[in-house]
């Protein structure tokens, strides 16, 4: 069974400038710098975006260039096909701008995940939800759901590959149904057991934490999210 470490494992530990930059600032930078590239779609902005993020990754985050480019490898077939298609339909400029824009966004997103521990990213996501509280969102429960999800993935991947092997052993590898039905049934039973355990611990119930602790619990939350250094 795979540990969750692998799942949150894009993070490369380090002490570079970008590792130390707060997540919110990094996120703003990445979105702010990649959006114009996608919207404008001129060779000059695309090239500038590529250079900017390659510099940020190699100099700002002190990552080896090989590793930076390696992140693009899985997307290469798609990017190459897009380039070919754009060349034939709209000429060489489009062949650079369309896949180039996607590459910029990939680098930008990679920058965040490589320099920020996974748990911190999730905490950041929870903070992003916090302003939605007025619309009925509940950041506490959202955070709890995220945690349960992250911790359930290795369990389910494990049971999926176990059952894949079992199906193969019985010559049923061509029957996804033989594999997926038990996985889903297990997942439901597992979710119900987890739900019971949550209820038993007084977690995840809909009434918000306020009436339980006498006062606003979300107010102190920011200290919590900042206090974590990620697992």
């Amino acid at each position: 069974m795979r540990g969750h470490g692998q799942l949150l494992g894009l993070y490369v530990p380090g002490h570079s400038l970008l590792h130390r930059t707060p997540l919110a600032l990094k996120a703003l930078l990445c979105v702010g710098a990649s959006t114009p590239v996608v919207l404008i779609r001129q060779p000059i902005t695309t090239a500038a975006g590529l250079v900017l993020f390659l510099l940020l990754m190699t100099v700002g985050a002190r990552l080896p260039l090989r590793k930076v480019l390696g992140a693009l490898v899985p997307a290469l077939p798609v990017l190459a096909l897009l380039a070919l298609y754009s060349w034939f339909t709209r000429g060489p400029e489009a062949a650079f701008v369309v896949p180039g824009g996607i590459a910029v966004c990939m680098l930008a997103a990679r920058l965040l995940t490589v320099t920020t521990p996974g748990q911190e990213l999730l905490d950041g996501l929870v903070r992003l939800v916090r302003p939605l509280r007025r619309l009925g969102a509940d950041p506490e429960r959202f955070a709890l759901a995220l945690s349960i999800m992250v911790r359930s993935i290795p369990y389910l991947v494990g049971s999926l590959s176990d059952l894949r092997d079992a199906a193969k052993a019985r010559g049923l590898q061509r029957s996804p149904r033989a594999v997926v039905v038990p996985v889903v049934v297990n997942a439901v039973a597992y979710a119900q057991a987890t739900g019971q355990a949550l209820a038993a611990r007084g977690l995840g119930e809909h009434t918000d934490a306020r009436d339980m602790h006498g006062e606003n619990m979300d107010g102190e939350d920011s200290t919590d999210a900042d206090g974590r250094d990620g697992a």
Binding site: L144, I153, L156, V183, V184, V188, G195, L203, E205
Partner: peptide
């Protein structure tokens, strides 16, 4: 608003199932 902890956990586990 009325989702209880089992609903919450079903939501989370199915999200994990899609991921898996």
């Amino acid at each position: 608003k009325r989702w209880n902890s089992t609903d919450l956990s079903l939501i989370a586990v199915f999200a994990a199932l899609i991921a898996a």
